[in-house]
């Protein structure tokens, strides 16, 4: 008992005297290094916030997805997708490649799509490379965009009703993306 109390005391005094000094001079790395010899399993870099706060999901350029993406929010694709993409506002970045159909309320293309676009509003920027049909209600094509396919203004019409049943509810809602008509386009344009 005596030994324990003595130890505790000396430890306490030690701690009291040393901690302020340590706090000043050393970063919190030191205690970690003492307790763990190997690499820390959870570096603080985990909590990186996404660069764009407005865009909810980002498929960055190193990511390749084989399969289907479905979201009730916005999607930004900078990587590679082999499959269909469904979202509300879908942006396909300059180096992105999509092989499949892109459904959305608004689709902005600066990269490559090999497949189809079905969206209420379609924007093809100057770096866009579109191989396949575009089903739209409202389209904007910038000079320099490449299209190999038909542009059909049939979005939301009876013939397509079944094809994009999942995309429909979003299309009924008045476009939230109208408010940033200029914003995202300029963003993609400057990047290209």
């Amino acid at each position: 008992m005596n030994m324990f109390t003595r130890n505790d005391k000396s430890f306490d005094t030690n701690a009291a005297s040393t901690t302020p000094v340590r706090d000043k001079t050393e970063t919190p790395v030191a205690p970690i290094a003492e307790t763990k010899r190997t690499s820390p399993p959870a570096p603080p870099t985990y909590e990186i916030a996404t660069p764009q706060t407005r865009v909810v999901s980002v498929i960055s350029k190193a990511l390749k997805i084989t399969g289907q993406l479905e979201s009730t929010e916005d999607i930004q694709v900078d990587g590679e997708v082999d499959g269909d993409v469904r979202g509300v506002s879908v942006k396909i970045g300059g180096n992105a490649k999509v092989k499949g159909t892109v459904y959305g309320d608004t689709v902005e293309l600066a990269g490559t799509i090999d497949g189809k676009i079905e969206a209420k509003k379609v924007i093809l920027t100057s770096t866009a490379h579109m191989s396949g049909d575009v089903v739209h209600q409202d389209i904007r094509i910038e000079s320099g965009a490449y299209i190999d396919g038909h542009c059909r203004p049939e979005f939301g019409k009876a013939a397509n009703k079944n094809a994009h049943a999942a995309a429909k509810p979003a299309a009924v809602v008045p476009t939230g993306s109208v408010r940033d008509k200029t914003g995202p386009v300029a963003e993609i344009g400057t990047r290209a």
Binding site: V56, S60, A62, L63, K64, I65, G67, S71, D82
Partner: peptide, 27 residues
């Protein structure tokens, strides 16, 4: 540097993901 991929909570993916970078999944 590759920016991290961020899959928001409303996003559902059926299929495989492959990257040499960082992926955050909330969906």
């Amino acid at each position: 540097e590759f920016p991290a991929s961020h899959l928001g909570k409303a996003l559902t993916i059926k299929g495989s993901l492959e990257t040499t970078g960082v992926v955050h999944i909330y969906g």
